[in-house]
């Protein structure tokens, strides 16, 4: 499992009420990598946070790993 996927999964599972429904998939694009995070509908608010603060914090941390690998990464929460 890639380091980015592992990081997102660790955080999302720890936050979710339904950790078994947390799914992270990686979609490799030409220049960028898209991480798609799926959670149970009732966990959405928790993962996104007030004003998207939690989602943005997760994105910031993912960027640390992306920079090391010289990649552009976007995190979509669906």
């Amino acid at each position: 499992m890639s380091a980015m996927k592992d990081l997102v999964e660790y955080i999302a599972k720890a936050l979710a009420d339904k950790p078994q429904q947390v799914q992270v998939s990686e979609i490799e694009g030409e220049a960028a990598l898209v991480l798609e995070l799926r959670v149970a509908p009732e966990d959405m608010g928790r993962i996104i946070g007030k004003d998207g603060r939690t989602a943005n914090a997760i994105r910031t941390l993912v960027r640390v790993l992306a920079a090391k690998q010289g990649k552009r990464v976007t995190l979509e929460i669906v």
Binding site: I11, A57, T60, L61
Partner: peptide, 21 residues
């Protein structure tokens, strides 16, 4: 330096997530 990030951004993100967890 990497962990602190520009204007302490990465550190702030880490702290936010840690608090929640």
């Amino acid at each position: 330096d990497t962990l602190i990030g520009p204007r302490g951004e990465t550190l702030a993100a880490l702290q936010h997530i840690l608090r929640l967890l």
